[in-house]
Design a protein around this nucleic acid. Structure first.
Lengths: 198, 198
DNA sequence: AATAAGTTAGTGAGTGATCACTTACTTCAT
DNA sequence: ATGAAGTAAGTGATCACTCACTAACTTATT
């Protein structure tokens, strides 16, 4: 079935995103993508000049999706620690929903093949790091570390947990385990008395 | 130059370990390995029946090396928090020394190609998790979380930091940045008063 | 409204390169 | 002399990507 190029491009990108985790991102072939979309393999190259260009678009698609998820969770309230928690939970949610994101963002093979991908993902990481730090900064002197360091600790928790989740074959619930550890982490970061969890 | 099979096997495994980070683990070809060792490509297959068998041996080699590093850092003292810190610093040290370890352990592509690798690395992660938890347990009621949860937080910190370090092109010092964040993390985990850092 | 002309999305059949792996033969140390 | 370690020369399979062509949709002219 013939479709408009714009729609087809999106179909291809979404197929890549869907298949990446089960085949391994860098092992995903244009043939497999074409089969999943339901077009011939050369048709993929009508929409993307090279395989690298396809992956770059997938990277931007992922970045956009993740940022949209952060935006949806980012209504700064009068409880900045609760804001941090919401942002972190949203991040775990989007990863749990689409595990390929993890495999793609952390694929050393993809990044070796195209260093431009690293720039996209570095930007993404700097973004959430800044968002977390900004909310931590709003906590003022209740915070026991610098906002930037607190953000790095939470970011490390998110990434480390996600990796363990992936290596464990996604055998536990990422979000609920994350919420548990996150509460412990936040409790250690803010001065007792000003409750994040009542 | 003709060598004993045992020596040659080790040379091959070490060449893989050396090359993995720059070429991307799953992108490493038997030809590239053979060139690095200085033998012909078919000679690799005299020592390993398949590529997967080579990677499995590399995985065990990595596990052995990392565990040896943990053992060297693991002299339980009367300050269990200091023990945790030493273990964590040792772990960062071995990763900083051989960044390929990171790329290999977290390569989704390698694990898709041979799920047996996941078992080896899961075991490795369970091992350090247990070691950390054991030291945390020795801290008794000074600990503000369960030993297992405290271990998971530290493990998450180590993995998340290492990933950020890799994505940032290893542009900062892993160990010193790790020590800084680790002290913050540990301060949030133990009851104030009983100092880990004087 | 009908149709000719042009554009775009798609296909089938390849291309050369490269992959893991094999076979047949050679060299060297014991 | 014998067996282990090595090589030269392949194997088929698969990869990203190209080429010549067609069918479908759009636009312009009548």
């Amino acid at each position: 079935m013939r479709k408009r190029a714009e729609d087809r491009r999106l179909e291809i990108v979404e197929a890549v995103l869907r298949l990446a985790v089960e085949m391994g991102p860098d092992r995903l072939t244009t043939q497999a993508v074409a089969d999943a979309v339901g077009i011939s393999q050369p048709a993929v190259f009508r929409h993307f000049p090279t395989r690298a260009a396809l992956w770059l678009e997938v990277a931007h698609h992922v970045a956009e999706r993740v940022r949209a998820c952060w935006d949806a969770a980012a209504s700064p309230s009068d409880d900045p620690i609760a804001d941090v928690r919401r942002l972190a939970v949203a991040q775990m949610g989007v990863v749990a929903d689409e595990p390929s994101i993890l495999a793609i963002v952390f694929s050393h093979e993809l990044r070796v093949a195209d260093p431009a991908l690293a720039d996209v993902f570095r930007g993404l990481m700097g973004d959430i790091s800044g968002r977390l730090a900004a909310r931590f900064a709003a906590a003022g002197d209740r915070l026991l570390a610098s906002p930037a360091d607190a953000a790095l600790l939470v970011l490390g928790l998110l990434q480390g947990l996600a990796l363990r989740w992936s290596l464990a074959g996604r055998g536990f619930d990422l979000v609920s385990e994350g919420e548990r550890l996150l509460d412990l982490q936040l409790a250690g970061l803010v001065r007792p008395g000003s409750g994040v969890t009542p």
